[in-house]
C-alpha cells in the first residue's frame, strides 16, 4: 500500500550525504575554530594550532570541491539526476506546507501537509521526494557550498585573488565574506541536525538519508484499508525523547543565536570592519553559546555515524532473512505490492 518512510534515496545519494556531512563538519570545526578563535581556542589547539587547522581545512576543502563537482556531474549526465530536477523545484505545495505547519503548531490543522511530513506512515505515498524544508536545504546548501568552495580556492591562491581584486585589503575582505557566508550554512546545519534527530517518530536519527530505498520494503500495514491517519498514534514514544529533545532544542537555539551574535561582534576573521575590535571572548555567555553550537555539530557528526551503523545492521538483518525467507515472519514471502511507484522509479530510488 505505501512505502515506508525511510526509502527515498539511492545508495549513491545516501553515501554522498554521509561523505558530504563528514567533510562539511570538518570544514566547520576548522573554519570556525579560526573565525571564533577567541571562543574556540581549545578547538584550535586540539587540531594542531593555526598550522594544523588551516592544513585540515584545506585538505577537507579539496574534498568538498571533489564532492561538489562529482554531484553536479552526476546530476547532469545521469537520467536519474536529470529527472530529479523537477522534484526539487519549489512549488505552491511548499508554501502551503509552510503555512499549514504554522497552523498545525497553533492547533488549527489536524496534521502536517504531505510536503512537510517527515513521518508519512500509512500515507507515505503522498509524501514527495523532498519536503519543503528538504528543498530549502538543497537550494541553500548548494548555493552556499559552491560559493564557499570558489571563495575558499580564491583565498588559498593569494596570487589568484590579488589578480582579481588588486589590493591586499580587498583580498582580506574576501576572507571575511567566506567566513560570514558559512555562518548561514552553519546555522542551517544545526537546524538540519535538530530536524532529523529529534522527530519523535524517528528519534534519535531519521534513517531516510542513510538506508537506501533499495533496502526498504514497499508496503506495510493493512493492505486494502484506506488510511485515515499516518499511523503515528501506533508508535511508542522513546522514554528519553522529552528530556533529550528539550535539551538539544535549547542547545540548537543557543548555538544558532550565539554564532550569529559572534559573527557580528567578532566581525569575522580576520578583517575587522570597525577600528576597535575585541581581542578576546566578548563575554562568557557568548563563549559558552558558541561552544554549545559546536556541541550541536558534534552530535550531528555522531548521529551521522549512527545512521550508518543502523544501515549496516539493517543490511545484516536483510542478509539473514534472505537465508531464511520464511522463518523471518513465520509466513509466506509476499510477492504482490512490491512494484515501485512509476514516478519514483524514474527518479530517486
Amino acid at each position: 500500500m505505501s512505502n515506508l518512510d525511510h526509502g527515498k534515496f539511492t545508495r549513491v545519494t545516501t553515501l554522498f550525504h554521509s561523505l558530504l556531512g563528514l567533510d562539511v563538519f570538518l570544514l566547520f570545526f576548522t573554519g570556525y575554530a579560526i573565525m571564533f578563535n577567541d571562543e574556540l581556542w581549545w578547538m584550535l589547539t586540539l587540531m594542531g594550532g593555526a598550522s594544523g587547522v588551516t592544513a585540515i581545512h584545506r585538505i577537507t576543502g579539496i574534498g568538498l570541491v571533489a564532492l561538489v563537482i562529482f554531484w553536479i556531474t552526476l546530476q547532469i549526465i545521469s537520467s536519474t539526476g536529470r529527472s530529479n530536477f523537477s522534484k526539487i523545484l519549489p512549488g505552491k505545495d511548499d508554501i502551503d506546507a509552510f503555512i499549514q505547519d504554522i497552523q498545525f503548531v497553533l492547533g488549527r490543522a489536524d496534521e502536517r501537509h504531505p510536503s512537510a511530513r517527515q513521518f508519512g506512515g500509512y500515507k507515505a505515498d503522498e509524501v514527495p521526494l523532498l519536503s519543503y524544508i528538504g528543498k530549502g536545504v538543497v537550494f541553500i546548501f548548494s548555493i552556499e557550498l559552491t560559493l564557499l568552495a570558489i571563495s575558499g580556492l580564491l583565498i588559498w591562491s593569494k596570487t589568484g585573488l590579488a589578480a582579481m581584486f588588486q589590493t591586499k585589503a580587498a583580498a582580506m575582505a574576501f576572507v571575511t565574506f567566506h567566513g560570514l557566508l558559512g555562518v548561514i550554512m552553519l546555522m542551517g546545519v544545526m537546524f538540519h541536525i535538530f530536524e532529523h534527530g529529534m522527530h519523535p517518530a524517528f528519534y534519535p536519527v531519521e534513517t531516510k538519508a542513510f538506508i537506501p530505498r533499495s533496502m526498504v520494503p514497499e508496503h506495510h500495514g493493512d493492505e486494502d484499508e484506506e488510511p485515515d491517519t499516518t499511523g503515528i498514534e501506533r508508535l511508542s514514544l522513546s522514554p528519553s525523547w522529552r528530556t533529550v529533545s528539550t535539551i538539544f532544542g535549547a542547545m540548537t537555539v543557543i548555538g544558532i543565536v550565539s554564532v550569529l551574535i559572534g559573527s557580528i561582534f567578532d566581525e569575522g576573521y580576520p578583517v575587522p570592519r570597525e577600528l576597535a575590535i575585541g581581542g578576546g571572548p566578548s563575554s562568557i555567555l557568548l563563549t559558552v553559546g558558541i561552544n554549545l553550537g559546536m556541541v550541536v555539530l558534534g552530535v550531528g557528526l555522531v548521529l551521522s555515524m549512527y545512521g550508518n551503523v543502523l544501515r549496516i545492521r539493517w543490511e545484516q538483518q536483510l542478509e539473514e532473512e534472505r537465508e531464511q525467507p520464511t522463518a523471518a515472519d513465520g509466513g509466506e514471502p509476499q510477492t504482490d505490492g512490491g512494484q515501485p511507484n512509476a514516478d519514483d522509479a524514474e527518479s530517486e530510488n
Binding site: 530505498r213 533499495s214 514497499e218 508496503h219 536483510l318 532473512e321 525467507p325 515472519d329 514471502p333 512490491g338
Partner: peptide, 8 residues
C-alpha cells in the same frame, strides 16, 4: 519482518 520480495 522483511522478505527480499518486499524490496523494490
Amino acid at each position: 519482518m522483511t522478505a527480499e520480495e518486499d524490496l523494490p
